[in-house]
């Protein structure tokens, strides 16, 4: 009983600790006194700049990082379960690239209407749906390419994802050339950043992880069963085609929203679910929830690093996650080959 209590409280306290640290750390030092003063509405001791920074920049940034990290981790979790492969993640299967092309197209179109896309909640809100469509298209293509006799092999998946990402990057570059005046923002998609994001961005992205999370709440058993292969899943009572499509849709939705608001951030979807699976086991009922929690925390931590390592200059957060996730991915590839290659051949 006590163990369960600790198990429930521990992750929450970690989240609180991470958030608190992120609020306090930054290129602008904010002291505990500042925070308390703000909370206690005693604004005499706090400079107005500090207050503005906490409320309008740092807090929404932390909230956004949590939402984006949670979305990407969830998306990775779903893709890994769906594709029966621990090496799947939105970046590797090309979903992030698809989302960036979709978002770029949206930004271009909005620009043609003479509006700056970040100007209002309305224009900002138009981008995620386009990104979602781009991500969905990419995921469907990668899945079809990698599938053979109902099995999705590691190599085919990686190849499909790499090929897709290359093609999509080329399309993105083409859009950049066509876009002339509007082209600069498109470059940022490749790097990922939470700089200068406000509550407007949080609101624009919020519906998607909420909807996606709700859609996945009842799907943990399905994701577990899918690990046995499509034939067996059907025999156990799962409408595989329908569930597959719904899960792909959800993964694309989560990825699209994340990319739309912060650019392409690599490896979070790979790293988080995989580490959690190693520690806590593959059961999706706990894996999905933990992915949200730890994905969010991880992104907050990565973003805090990105904005403080070279302060006041900011590194794109995608670089921090890639530096963490890239080597890990290579290590996994080496290890998983031994462990599962023999199994699936048996």
């Amino acid at each position: 009983m006590l163990k369960r209590l600790i198990a429930a409280v521990l992750p929450l306290s970690v989240v609180i600790a991470v958030v608190a640290a992120a609020v306090a750390i930054g290129s602008v030092p904010i002291t505990i006194r500042d925070i308390l003063a703000l909370v206690g509405r005693d604004s005499e001791g706090v400079t107005s700049a500090a207050a503005a920074i906490i409320l309008t920049l740092r807090l929404p940034r932390i909230a956004l990082a949590f939402l984006v990290g949670a979305s990407l981790a969830l998306s990775g979790c779903v893709l890994q379960g769906l594709l029966r492969n621990p090496l799947a993640d939105p970046y590797i299967v090309g979903a992030s690239s698809g989302a960036s092309v979709g978002a770029a197209a949206a930004i271009l179109l909005i620009g043609k209407c003479g509006v700056s896309w970040q100007q209002s909640l309305w224009s900002l809100g138009l981008v995620p749906p386009f990104a979602f469509l781009g991500a969905l298209a990419a995921v469907l293509v990668a899945y079809r390419l990698a599938r053979n006799d109902g099995q999705v092999s590691v190599i085919a998946l990686l190849l499909a994802g790499v090929a897709l990402s290359t093609v999509l990057s080329a399309i993105l570059t083409l859009l950049i050339y066509i876009g002339d005046e509007v082209n600069h923002p498109l470059i940022y998609w490749l790097m990922g950043s939470f700089n200068n994001r406000g509550w407007r961005h949080v609101l624009a992205v919020l519906p998607y992880p909420l909807v996606g999370g709700c859609a996945l709440a009842a799907k943990s058993s399905v994701l577990d069963i899918l690990a046995l292969g499509e034939t067996k899943a059907q025999q156990l009572g799962v409408d595989v085609e329908k569930e597959k499509f719904r899960l792909l849709l959800t993964a694309a939705l989560l990825t699209g929203a994340a990319v739309a608001v912060s650019g392409v951030i690599a490896f979070t979807g790979l790293l988080i679910p995989h580490v959690l699976r190693l520690i806590y086991g593959p059961g999706h009922r706990q894996l999905l929830v933990r992915s949200v929690l730890w994905g969010g925390c991880f992104m907050i931590a990565a973003d805090t690093l990105a904005r403080t390592l070279l302060r006041p200059v900011e590194i794109p957060v995608g670089i921090v996650t890639a530096l963490c996730g890239g080597p890990f991915f290579l290590y996994l590839l080496r290890r998983e080959q031994d462990k599962y290659w023999g199994e699936s051949n048996g």
């Binding site: 069963i225 690990a227 046995l228 156990l236």
Partner: peptide, 17 residues
Amino acid sequence: SVGFAYRAEDIVRMGRY
């Protein structure tokens, strides 16, 4: 062939779906 580290009990429980 099971791609993830499910335990025997997990596998049997899937039959209850």
